[in-house]
Simulated assay, not measured.
Amino acid sequence: MEENDFVAIWLEETGNPAIERLSQLNLAIAAKAAAAIANNELTEQDLAIALDVNPDEIKRWLTGRHTFSMTIITEIAAKLEVLPE
């Protein structure tokens, strides 16, 4: 890191609020999606079909090993009628 790289220094000292918020949103929507699957007696396969994605992708989402795009968050919210906090 360069001595005068103020952005990098600021990020190192304070973190990136946008990335932190996205991380929190990912965890929240994954938890809500998992609960919605359980409450609606859906399977991961059902969600994969509804969202037109590979079932393995659903597994990665629900275990927190993959982040959601805003498009996918919107689609999950619409399909499962859940809204991120």
Results as ranks from 00 to 15, higher is better:
A35W: 00
E20Y: 00
S69N: 05
Q45F: 03
V53Q: 08
E75A: 09
G64H: 13
L42V: 03
A34K: 13
L25P: 00
L80V: 03
E3C: 09
D5M: 10
K79A: 15
L25Y: 00
L83I: 13
A77H: 02
L83E: 12
V7F: 08
E13R: 15
I29S: 01
S69R: 06
R65Q: 15
A50T: 03
I19F: 00
D56R: 09
V53I: 15
S23L: 09
R21I: 10
L62K: 10
D46W: 11
M70A: 08
Q45D: 04
G64W: 10
A38I: 03
Q45N: 08
V82E: 06
H66I: 05
A28D: 07
V7Q: 02
H66Y: 14
L25F: 02
E20M: 04
L80R: 08
W10L: 14
L80P: 04
L83H: 09
E57P: 00
N54W: 02
A36N: 01
T67N: 12
E57I: 09
R60D: 11
N54F: 05
R21C: 01
A18G: 03
E85R: 13
A77S: 15
I76S: 08
D5V: 11
E13K: 15
L47H: 09
D52H: 10
P17D: 01
G15I: 04
N16Y: 10
T74D: 15
M1N: 07
A28P: 00
T74S: 12
I76Q: 11
G15F: 12
L62N: 12
T14N: 09
V53S: 07
I19V: 02
I37N: 01
A34Y: 06
I58L: 03
N4K: 12
L11R: 12
L42R: 11
N16C: 14
F68I: 08
M1L: 14
L11F: 06
K32Y: 05
W61D: 00
S69W: 07
F68A: 10
K32G: 06
I37P: 04
I73Y: 02
S23K: 14
I37V: 13
N40M: 05
I58R: 05
